[in-house]
């Protein structure tokens, strides 16, 4: 005969043990022990989950990319060309990023009259200065990566592709500020409709 009757208390003990085991996992699922972005953590000395990269860390993602991609400078000095094709999208991306990260100080036209300057930040030179008109695109990439005098570096905030896009846009901005009606392509001029260009180069409606 099978010991049918003894298995009932056995099973009860088993169930009880299971209940006890499960009860011991009384961790709240809302606060799991895994680390989430920006949480505090006793694991690291500075008490934060978010850790800085160690000095000299080499990015695998960007491995094999030339250092000039970040500094704007190669063996021949400051670079005059972008390391990728210059398209309208690149310049438009550059405008968007310039307006976010640079315009607060340098102003939307690069005159150096942004809102933070009006509130007491030292005034940067205008991008229309001859020295800066002559500076090649690589100069601007270098300044964004490394900072300049009292301007902090933007390397941690602006990824390298965007630095080139911003630099390309600054060059476009400089051209646009010194442009005359003759620089406007005929097709675009026609789009301006009945507005007639005047001799001084401004457009009158």
């Amino acid at each position: 005969m099978r010991p049918q009757r003894r298995s009932v208390p056995l099973r009860a003990v088993g169930v009880l043990a299971l209940v006890l085991v499960l009860a011991s996992c009384g961790r709240n699922m809302a606060e799991q022990p895994s680390a989430r972005a920006f949480e505090a953590s006793p694991f690291f000395a500075d008490g934060s989950v978010q850790q800085r990269l160690l000095e000299g860390t080499v990015s695998r993602e960007r491995g094999g990319i030339d250092a000039s991609y970040f500094s704007g400078q190669d063996a021949d000095g400051l670079m005059r060309d972008l390391p990728f094709d210059l398209t309208l999208e690149v310049v438009q991306r550059g405008k968007e990023r310039y307006d976010i990260y640079c315009s607060v100080c340098h102003g939307y036209t690069g005159e150096g009259d942004g809102m933070i300057v009006q509130r007491g930040f030292p005034q940067p030179s205008s991008f229309q200065q001859q020295r800066l008109l002559d500076a090649p695109v690589g100069y601007y990439v270098g300044v964004i990566t490394n900072g300049f005098g009292r301007m902090f570096p933007y390397a941690s905030r602006v990824p390298p592709e965007d630095r080139w896009a911003i630099a390309a846009y600054v060059k476009a901005l400089q051209l646009s500020q010194n442009a005359s009606v003759d620089d406007v392509p005929d097709a675009a001029l026609r789009d301006l409709g009945d507005s007639t260009p005047t001799s001084e180069g401004s457009v009158r409606r």
Partner: peptide, 25 residues
């Protein structure tokens, strides 16, 4: 800075504040 590219929007490090507040106020 990461709101367009990551799950977390990120809260700025002190460096971001000091970009301006090393000179302002």
């Amino acid at each position: 800075t990461t709101v367009e590219v990551a799950a977390s929007a990120s809260v700025p490090p002190t460096e971001t504040c000091m970009t301006c507040h090393s000179q302002v106020r």
